[in-house]
Design a protein around this nucleic acid. Structure first.
Lengths: 255, 255
DNA sequence: CGCTGTCTTGAATGAATTCAACCCATGTGG
DNA sequence: CCACATGGGTTGAATTCATTCAAGACAGCG
């Protein structure tokens, strides 16, 4: 399935919030980050950026939302993560011969391609930034563990609450002023594939949350009406990142 | 709950198979790996090595099996991963103020403590080895994604098949001669916490697999009788690691 | 205007849970 | 060496949550 892709020379400056959450970066490090990607591309909603089984590639997401999913032979699908702007995508598959997950644009999307050599260069030249890459990979694991907890041990309502809060928290990282109402560009079916449920049941469950007054809905727009109670439902602890931990390697070893 | 821990000065040489799977390491790198941990400790079955919420610590597992789990207020628990000898444990929490998961000894266990500074030192002095650490963190993500797929989208039997195969494959990495019969040191309840099911249902499900002739059981000893069919049930693709990928940074930058 | 994709709601089915009783192996102390 | 307690494991019956099937509503778009 060849996908028609518009390309552009324009360099998108994605906010490196995910990285900065772990440490203040030097200008050299920020610069290295910004030169990671090349060859920016634009995809439209529902376009597949890369399919599971394809040779692994790494992308930097600049604009829009992307789902990372995998499917079984019987057609059932599970979304493993939702990527928001500033995310490095596809890295988990980089050590394998074939990509494990399919990357699908959930909205209009702008990405650039990241050569593994570029990452290797960072590991050679910027040990501190490399460590931040490592921490970011660990954070992704924590997120996956929380999703596994949720899907493995919680009922539909609670999974939904947990997911909405997860997205809200991540949007707030991108924009601390992000309001309690935001656009959630997922169909019921995609939402179901995130939660390990079925679209019909997600519909009922959203309705339930709404009747309980915890959320409001208007098409794809979600309003979180009661963060307190939603967090109680979700049952997951809030985590605090240690910024600039003392054990981070120094920024020396400059070129 | 203070845990009584026997300590020893003895240095355990854990096989770094997980690391070597990604690249041939130089003697300097192997040496660095072997000096990662200090302060070896021994725990007995069911002892908690560290509890979720504790200050994050990192461990190297030398002997035995360890479960990484987290629990909800209502007491339900989900096991996120099973650690086997050679695993780095606890790293996902290193960027946070509190550990996300509880580490529990499933058997007699020997571990050593790994200072985050020691890892930072590797990132400073051994960029190539640091990259292997990064790849390992990515591999852990793939494993978590597969567990999430399984728990989110497969029925009990299929989850069980997937898990047994996952363990078998990892045992084979440690010992390529590992036979189809092996000790699985998990109670039904722990197994249930891995699979996101309940102990009674795991019991029935194991019975089903046995009646189908796919496995045999004798106490904790499991025999996989039909790998082919088990893999079909599990529905997960087999993955191949790219050893020594060309883009790995060179082993230079020596001290 | 009538598609089509998406969402909603109802009723029947099914998988997994819950509750509960029972079995079995192990280990302990008399 | 037996009596008994204990932690796991098994099995049955009733319940619950989620799925499946199906019909209808609604919005967006040609």
């Amino acid at each position: 399935v060849t996908t028609h892709v518009k390309r552009t020379r324009h360099r998108h400056a994605s906010s490196p919030n995910r990285f900065i959450a772990f440490a203040d970066l030097t200008t050299a490090e920020i610069d290295a980050l910004e030169h990671l990607g090349s060859d920016a591309g634009v995809y439209s909603r529902d376009q597949v950026i890369r399919h599971e089984g394809d040779p692994p590639e790494i992308f930097m997401l600049h604009q829009g939302w992307v789902a990372s999913s995998a499917s079984f032979d019987d057609g059932s699908r599970q979304v493993a993560k939702i990527h928001l702007p500033g995310d490095l995508m596809g890295a988990p598959s980089m050590g394998y011969t074939a990509a494990a997950d399919t990357l699908t644009a959930l909205t209009e999307v702008a990405i650039s391609r990241v050569a593994p050599e570029a990452i290797a260069r960072i590991f050679r030249d910027h040990p501190r930034l490399a460590m931040v890459f490592f921490l970011l990979a660990q954070e992704e694991q924590i997120i996956l563990m929380e999703r596994l907890m949720s899907v493995g041990r919680r009922r539909g309502v609670q999974r939904l609450a947990a997911f909405l809060l997860h997205i809200y928290d991540r949007l707030r990282l991108l924009d601390p002023a992000c309001p309690l109402a935001f656009e959630l560009p997922l169909t019921l079916e995609q939402l179901a594939d995130v939660l390990g449920l079925h679209a019909v049941h997600v519909s009922r469950t959203l309705g339930r949350l709404e009747r309980q007054g915890l959320i409001k809905r208007d098409h794809k727009r979600i309003t979180l009406c009661n963060l307190e109670e939603l967090r109680k439902q979700a049952g997951l602890p809030r985590r605090t990142i240690v910024r600039n931990p003392p054990w981070l390697p120094s920024t020396s070893c400059e070129v």
